[in-house]
Amino acid sequence: MKAYLFSGQGSQFVGMGKDLYDKSFLAKRLFQLSNKILNFSITSVMFEDKKNILKYTRYTQIAIYIYSVIKTKILNNFNPDMVAGHSLGEFSALSSVGVLSFEDGLRLVKKRADIMQEICENTDGGMAAIFGLEDKIVESICKEKNGNVVPSNYNAPKQIVISGELKFLRKICSHLKKIGTTKIIYLPVHGAFHSPIMEPAKKKLENIIKNITFKKPKCPIYQNVTGNSVTNCGEIKRNIIKHITSPVKWKQTIKNMISVGVSSFEEISPKSILKGMVKKILIEFNKKKCKIM
């Protein structure tokens, strides 16, 4: 069985999608449709980025969504047994298997990106990747210190991301350094995603999502909130709403896919960022023979 994985923020780069645009008539048509829906040239941002704005959430998220979904539409043999997306990538995954139309998905991702960007501009949040410590240790320290910083991404064995108000995030990172973490990387994002700071975004998006038609997926989708397989439209919609403030359970997702017999994973992203995480998870669960493409 084959699983397709969709990346989130961090996989973007200037020039992304230009090769698809130049080589495929369908891709070109969908890029032009994206420009029309958005009412500005996202292709100029993706291909050239002369104003240096691709790094901002409101552009990054829609660019990655557009690239990822278009890529699945021009693949000759896109026939997944299951899909999953990391954070933003979950929206790409949903569109790839027919839960959302390309157009509805793009409009929703744009709303999500705009709302999240607004919160980022009005709060002093950040995210940091912690390497070398067990999840329980990081969870315990976040809870003990102040509760303003929470685990936001369970990426791989001994690789967890924490999110929260920047001043508290720095204090916790300083403490983690003292107790044995091997590496800390502050992520190049402008907000505390998948944390309580995003609660206002969750409330705004809930009203928008409720009015969008979700269709039954062509195959199971493993969602971030639980890491479990879902096919029910109502459950998918509820999880998408929770997704804004809940942690990304990526390690659990890959583990659950392995448990049902996945033999290969293929990443759909502008730039590969998931392969390394998946490889570490496969090693932990002694599934080294699984292919990662």
Rank of each mutant, 00 (worst) to 15 (best):
I197S: 10
S229F: 01
V189T: 11
K167W: 00
K202C: 08
V189E: 06
K202S: 05
I185V: 15
T181K: 06
K203Y: 09
G227F: 02
P196N: 11
I184H: 09
C233P: 11
Y222S: 09
K216Q: 13
T231N: 12
Y186S: 01
I185K: 13
K202Q: 14
M198T: 06
N211D: 14
K177R: 15
Y186T: 01
K171S: 14
H194A: 01
V230P: 00
P188Q: 02
P200C: 04
F214Q: 13
M198C: 10
G191F: 01
L169V: 06
V225C: 05
L205W: 10
Y222D: 02
G191W: 00
M198P: 09
I209T: 07
T213K: 15
M198I: 07
N211C: 03
S174R: 15
S195K: 02
I185H: 03
I185Y: 01
K177S: 08
K203F: 07
C219R: 13
M198G: 06
L205I: 04
K204W: 00
K177I: 04
G191D: 03
T231R: 13
I212Y: 12
K202H: 04
L176Y: 11
N232C: 13
K202F: 05
G234W: 00
G180T: 12
K171H: 08
F193N: 10
P220H: 03
F168K: 10
P217K: 13
P217D: 04
C219V: 12
H175A: 09
N228A: 02
I212T: 13
P200L: 01
V189Q: 02
N224R: 01
G227M: 04
G180F: 03
K202L: 14
K167N: 14
K171M: 09
K183N: 11
K171W: 00
V230L: 13
H194P: 10
N232F: 03
I179V: 15
I184E: 11
M198D: 06
I221Q: 07
G227V: 07
N232M: 04
P217Q: 09
G227Y: 03
K178W: 00
K171T: 11
K203E: 14
A192L: 04
T231Q: 12
K215D: 03
K204S: 02
P217R: 11
